[in-house]
């Protein structure tokens, strides 16, 4: 006890105390990083798979929609990409479910779910983020723009999973394929849900670089230094 007391004394002399908040429990951080890796793999291999038939039209005549550069794909070839895709889809869904179930069980979803009340706060926050507006008062754990971003990732996750199921098993999950307007459209929805993620990821990373080192840190250790809701 004496040594602990001494050490404590030392620290006080060395540096003032810091305010910290435990923001992200282990489940959330674990799910976040596993999901991030899985998403990277699924997008990279998904683009490789798309290269095999880069069109949403008929096979004959085939009109290619876009030429996906080989450089940004993963898996090497169609078969390799499918192996990665069919492996990481489980990891993606498992980590996604882990997060969603945890949020529901703890009630934390209320803090991050984007609702109608958040709509009016999106623009001021965006303005502040892009350096042409004052900083809005932050009195919640997440600001409206964050809520929109994080809620949309769950939405894209659900859509990409359901559309993926319809594509993977259009006969067994015929009702899913039917809900989506058939196999053909399911493939388009699956692609668009990836586009949703592709829209989110750069914004997310830029925000972390510009404003969110503390946020990044708290997604690693859970503890956030000087949280903005404590001025």
């Amino acid at each position: 006890m004496a040594t602990i007391a001494n050490a404590r004394k030392q620290n006080v002399i060395d540096s003032p105390p810091v305010t910290i908040a435990y923001e992200h429990p282990w489940v959330v951080r674990f799910a976040h990083w596993v999901n991030a890796v899985a998403l990277l793999v699924l997008v990279g291999t998904g683009l490789q798979i798309f290269r095999a038939f880069p069109s949403f039209g008929p096979k004959i005549p085939q009109k290619n929609l876009i030429d996906v550069p080989k450089l940004i794909t993963l898996g090497g070839w169609l078969g390799g990409a499918l192996q990665w895709h069919f492996t990481f889809m489980w990891i993606f869904v498992a980590s996604g479910l882990m997060y969603v179930i945890y949020q529901l069980a703890t009630g934390h979803w209320r803090q991050v779910l984007f609702t109608a009340r958040d709509i009016k706060g999106v623009w001021p926050m965006a303005r502040y983020y892009f350096f042409f507006g004052p900083k809005p008062v932050v009195d919640a754990a997440y600001n409206p723009l964050q809520k929109l971003a994080y809620t949309s990732t769950v939405f894209f996750g659900v859509i990409s999973t359901l559309t993926g199921m319809a594509l993977y098993k259009p006969v067994q999950f015929w009702w899913l394929a039917w809900l989506m307007g058939g196999f053909h459209l399911a493939r388009i929805w699956h692609f668009l849900s990836m586009c949703g993620f592709l829209a989110f990821i750069p914004g997310h990373l830029i925000m972390v670089l510009l404003h969110g080192w503390n946020n990044f840190y708290s997604m690693v250790t859970g503890w956030k230094r000087d949280p903005e809701y404590v001025e």
Binding site: R8, N11, V12, D14, S15, P17, E23, H24, H108, W223
Partner: peptide
């Protein structure tokens, strides 16, 4: 403005070493 983080844990003050 708030006394707890998103996980419901209270905001704390600790030494740098403790952090």
């Amino acid at each position: 403005l708030r006394t707890t983080g998103p996980a419901g844990e209270p905001v704390r003050s600790v030494s740098a070493a403790e952090r």
